[in-house]
């Protein structure tokens, strides 16, 4: 868990018609190619995973998820449901805590997708424990992110609005990592917007969300200035 706590922030939001995953991608060097080195990965076509902590362990986790999903759909001829997949992944992650010949996964993963029963969002930790959430956050800025997420009204939220809120929340959570530059990566999965497939949000929507996040931030700053002047 300690390894995870210092990792960059990831969040997930379950809206009424889909899920949104977002990651604060810390950029360590100007030499890194912008827009590449994607952090959020896909399992099958309809499930997305965002993780914080030891990134190679996250890839291992996703690779296992992909194997499980393909075995299931080969057997039952339909895409795996997210609760079922989480069951299998929870078991797999827990296995790595049983023996001294392996070490536990150094990631907390947020898994979201849409299946026959609608949108689902889960978060799984290195112990193998997982819960279903409407809003989940992990990584360095999780406290800030969690308190912001709690303010959202998930029953009414659409996936489009959720994308904008995700950008805003990541920006606020980034305060904990203020000295570094970051890139925002957002994905969504919704029957109406993406046909049930997990995809990166289109460029124009991403820019809109970033602008929204900046405006919200500026407003907050203005409010603070006003109160200062008042005193």
């Amino acid at each position: 868990m300690k390894a995870v706590e210092n990792g960059s922030t990831s969040i997930g939001i379950k809206a009424k018609d889909g899920v949104v995953l977002a990651v604060e991608k810390i950029v360590n060097s100007k030499l890194l190619v912008p827009g590449k080195n994607k952090r959020i990965q896909t399992i099958d076509r309809h499930i997305g995973v965002a993780y914080s902590g030891l990134l190679p362990d996250g890839r291992h986790f996703v690779n296992r998820g992909r194997d499980e999903a393909s075995t299931y759909s080969n057997m039952y001829k339909e895409p795996v449901s997210i609760p079922h997949l989480m069951d299998r992944l929870g078991l797999y992650v827990q296995n790595y805590t049983c023996y001294n010949s392996v070490r536990p996964f150094g990631v907390v993963s947020i898994v979201g997708g849409v299946d026959a029963n609608g949108p689902h969002l889960y978060m799984i930790e290195p112990s193998g424990t997982y819960w279903g959430y409407t809003g989940a956050a992990t990584g360095k800025g999780r406290q800030t992110a969690k308190s912001e997420l709690e303010k959202l009204n998930f029953e009414e939220l659409t996936v489009r609005e959720a994308v904008k809120h995700a950008a805003r929340i990541i920006r606020q959570a980034h305060e904990d990592n203020k000295d570094k530059d970051y890139e925002l990566e957002i994905t969504w999965c919704s029957l109406e917007e993406t046909g049930g497939q997990h995809q990166f949000v289109p460029e124009d929507l991403l820019q809109e969300a970033i602008k929204f996040a900046q405006e919200e931030d500026d407003e907050d700053d203005e409010d603070e200035e006003d109160t200062e002047m008042a005193t």
């Binding site: 300690k2 706590e5 030891l54 001294n100 010949s101 070490r103």
Partner: peptide, 10 residues
């Protein structure tokens, strides 16, 4: 490499 340190490092 299967041991974490108390601060979460490998």
């Amino acid at each position: 490499s299967v041991t974490y340190s108390p601060t979460g490092r490998l």
